[in-house]
Design a protein around this nucleic acid. Sequence first.
DNA 1: TCGTAGACTTGGAAAAATTTTG
DNA 2: CAAAATTTTTCCAAGTCTACGA
Length: 684
Amino acid sequence: MTVKETKKGKTSKAESSSDDDVTLSRKTKKETKKPAPKKEDAKVKKEKEPEEDTMIKWWEEGTQHPGGQHWLTLEHNGVLFPPEYVPHGLPCHYKMEDGKLKEIKMEPDEEEVCTMFAVMREQTRPPSDYYINPIFRKNFFMDWLQILNSNPERNMKRFGSKQHPIRSLEKVNFDRIWEWHLEQKEIKKALTKEQKLQIKKEKDEAEQLYKYCIWDGKKQPVGNFRIEPPGLFRGRGKHPLMGKLKRRVKPEDITINIGPGAKVPEAPAGHKWKEVRTDNMVTWLANWTENVNGQGKYVMLAASSMVKGKSDHKKFENARKLGQMIDSIREKYREGWKSPDVGIQQRSVAMYFIDFLALRCGHEKGEDEAETFGACSLKCEHINLEEERDHVVFDFLGKDSIRYYNKVKVESKVWELLRKFVKGKTPNSDLFDRLIPTHLNSYLKELMPGLSAKVFRTYNASWTLDKEFFDDPVSDSISLPEKLVYFNAANTKVAILCNHQKSVGKGFQKAMTVLEDRLKMLKNLYSRLEDVKELSKKHKNNWQAKVDEQWEKDEHEQQQAWLEQYGTEEEKTAYKEKRAGKKPSKPKTTTATTTTKSSSSKPKEPEKKKSDPKPKTKREKKQMESDSDSDIPLAKKKKASKSAKGDDSGSDVPKKKSKKTKLEKRKAFESSEEDEPMKKKSKK
DNA sequence: TCGTAGACTTGGAAAAATTTTG
DNA sequence: CAAAATTTTTCCAAGTCTACGA
């Protein structure tokens, strides 16, 4: 199918960009609910203050500072530090040679890190299965051990040996601390409402100072003013450093960026900042270097702030601009497929992937990172051309180690080129060995100022959403829930395009079972009602009695069936007795309370009536036990196909270069080919 | 021609808040 | 009211991309 028409009106929306959606829905929700609830405590609900003065229309132009400066004046109060560690004083235990557990008392520094780990005990399922992950455990243990052995004198005094007695993580028993953790949770839960409120109030108060800054004289919300607390690094996928201690950030680690002449926030008593500077070419208020990966962390403004808004705006304007010339760009890369230059061929195919499949650019990753891929960094083993002619099966781990699996039909020419690129190469060599992101982007920049690989994602995501709305406009007459379904369906298209996926949570299987169960029940009820309807037609005169009888019979049969399958002996007996000494209960033929509320839940079944009968019979609610089998329906993929139409016109092909001197990093990782983060294990 | 540091965007998971159920 | 379900917010790792430096 050709897609020539790609421009849409000015209605392109944010689509997957969570921020935008969130903002939108939040607003809507708030307004909707406002009229309804009257709050007994007027103060609980903090309504939006007018704040008209800050409502400047920055998108309308003119508000730009020259030379790439982001601000002229900037005031803020610095950052908020997490609370100091409060020791609980509890020991852990260590399994000795004789199998006995020996109590190990800990100093606060030892205990703090120990507790970080101990408390993760239940994190045993993907994607957060850190507690049982060997890499995580090893890294944590190394760092903990380092602390345990950091003070030989201390150890000598306590254990009569410079080396701490703990040598192996497997022999450490954290039960006591785990119990403490559970207790703490209970305590927290048991707090009275007033206490909870009080705590929250105190927290809010502590935040007040840091929540806003004054940016060019305007009050603006700060995003992450809270310094990240120490913890165990939770790298995703097969991150080699997961589990390492992310140490506590001190004022001495922090650089403050603030306007000229503005009052410099004071560092906590007894401390000082690493540096205080004034740099209006950047937007951050503070920064520090995190120790695990050595990367910078920044305190910046919130998504709702002006700067972020501007930049977001620019992003979409940019994508819109791409929309104006997407046709010619598509022509260009199609032209490139025919180039005699392999570099250009590769670049052109990569562009096709980025455009057509919305793949990310894909930069090279380092030794200390999980191995993930994108368009430019694909390996030969990530594509399979054998399945079907002109089809490519992609299978690789993308950002966050989320699997990209997709079988697509591609242009013949592309398929042929791919075959050529793969030829004679080992599976783990680069598919596009002559292409690097820098070159791709600088080429894109030539095609259109401001163009880079990611702009295609933004553009195509917006285009997709737009197309949904255009092809199948919302009808005014449908209900709000229906509109929601409509909107979500469109959004799902975008999610599929961009390969956005969420892992199924712990409760998913259970929730699904309940839902299926309920569906089954409703269907059953429906058919019974149908039967009864027939019956009542047949017995015009004494239909009531007939219906009662039939109903009771059904009920009994079902109950029997249920007991047969799930019931315990006691339950069976109890039922028998109950039935013996009881007269038929009255059926609820005509329900007066048919709340015809559209099911709404899963869009799969066209449910009609839902006369939700909360069965009076002892419908055991423990059906969660059943735990039927099966796999989780997960990310099915279909591909919206849009294609670029092409022909010839491209002329001068930009210079190609690209060498690629990637040091072959042989990953000693086990090459377990399948390792889906998706298995579902029911735990007792 | 790289390689990298620095700055900023992305986006999934966990936590918190809110609403619905029982 | 408490527990469960659902929605919103927060958190922060993991990307992108450009400018610099040699």
